[in-house]
Design a protein around this nucleic acid. Structure first.
Lengths: 253, 253
DNA sequence: CGATGTGTTGACCGGGTTCAAACAATGTGG
DNA sequence: CCACATTGTTTGAACCCGGTCAACACATCG
């Protein structure tokens, strides 16, 4: 099965208007991929469902996504597991495994994806002569820490519906930063996976999406329940605000 | 107010028996503080409640804790806020701000704390000549990514009681890694702060602690409700397992 | 001493889970 | 090409964990 959707593959047309923060992000991503050309790397093409690496693998290479999208799955010793992160073009995979020297998560392609495998040792070596490479690595790790933090904030402070809306907003934002269209997106995940990622059950995700559609914040595509139409990304943020607006209003004694 | 408890301050006596993973962690922490002596750093002594830095501050220095303990507080644009992380001796603060160049969180001392302020530029410079220093930084960032991931897993997969138990286990583990006693610990946080960190309300934290005490997994000190007696850290992990054991048992049709 | 902040506990309520049924999409083999 | 199995999605109804509201205990402090 080759699922090359317009939303995440390399062939997508650029978004009509790119400006401000998304443009800066786009530059950063392009610069990342450009700088990495100087490092010996191996390109790997993965189809949806294929693993980039598995938890426990020795850390030989870090991976940077050239195109496509990848999820990481974290698992505890007692068998609880969770989708821990989603990654797109320009994102690094395996940064959390540098300390332990072994991968802590499974990484699985969600779509047709090309990753660049970069030997960690070679990267450090090249980084000694080219500080910009190291800065790249530090920035990537730092950004992921910020991202994780914001994810935790959403988990802890938003009700289920708003969490789903915020998830879609984040996905659309990631696409916008990469110059892809955000009005028609494909979530390459089942309801169960989304729910697992957001800390809720699949039925709750389904109901939340239905509610968002009922309120015209999103619309289901005629082609299937996986393809979503997002007329206005800002409206998703607005929905989140309204969700806690009613709570905030209740707090104003 | 000077709250120098035996649990987190530098004067605490070493734990009776240190072996295995905790010992390795202890070496890593000692080595961190030792290597950093070669970098120009400024020592700052902070009392409980005083900020190490605030969100929005320009990133000039990274901070490493020499003794004491610190919380970071993340805040969204719309005012939702959350305790994002807890840090002890040897931990780095501000790693998430390297990308943006500004602090993304408030960092506040929870106890009498000494931090070493290390100019980021100087660290990179020193790192060029001493790769071990860079490795130190990478390891610190990588470990924090892993830690955040595990925190998210707990948030998403554990019921409230188990989350509190796991929180205490994690705190005790952090102390054990630093050679401090874990049988008598002081949580320098209110129930509200703990709840905020764990994604639940203060009443739920209070009830969870009461239940843990009722089941003899912990005991309240006679000196106050902030000081806890943990007879057996493994029993906390056991409680977590039992919490989802009943669920797991229900799943075995 | 009252005042304020913190912790505990009870009673009630509601958002999200659980259980269940039906439907849609996709694939498989005859 | 269709019968059939499999997997994913939607929706309803009942239940329950954790939130909300409230009362009280207990510190510390001016």
């Amino acid at each position: 099965m080759i699922a090359t959707s317009a939303s995440t593959a390399h062939a997508a047309r650029p978004a009509p208007a790119v400006r401000g923060a998304p443009a800066a992000a786009r530059q950063r991503i392009d610069r990342t991929l450009e700088l990495l050309q100087r490092v010996p790397l191996t390109r790997r093409l993965l189809h949806a469902g294929e693993p980039v690496f598995r938890a426990g693998d020795a850390l030989a290479c870090l991976h940077v996504i050239h195109f496509g999208c990848v999820k990481t799955v974290n698992m505890s010793a007692d068998g609880r597991e969770q989708v821990a992160g989603l990654y797109f073009k320009g994102d690094w995979l395996g940064l959390d495994s540098i300390a332990a020297g072994r991968q802590g998560c499974d990484a699985v392609a969600l779509d047709l994806t090309e990753v660049w495998a970069i030997p960690y040792a070679a990267l450090l070596e090249a980084g000694a002569g080219e500080p910009a490479l190291l800065e790249l690595l530090h920035t990537a790790m730092s950004r992921e820490l910020s991202r994780d933090r914001d994810a935790m904030l959403s988990l802890c402070t938003l009700p289920a519906d708003a969490r789903v809306a915020d998830f879609l907003r984040g996905w659309a934002e990631a696409l916008a930063e990469r110059g892809l269209r955000t009005d028609q997106i494909t979530i390459h995940m089942t309801r169960a996976e989304i729910g697992n990622y957001l800390g809720m059950k699949l039925e709750t995700v389904s109901r939340a999406l239905s509610r968002l559609a009922r309120e015209k914040v999103i619309a289901f595509s005629e082609t299937g329940r996986r393809d979503l139409h997002i007329p206005d990304v800002a409206a998703l943020a607005g929905f989140v605000q309204r969700s806690l607006g009613v709570e905030a209003a209740a707090l104003v004694h």
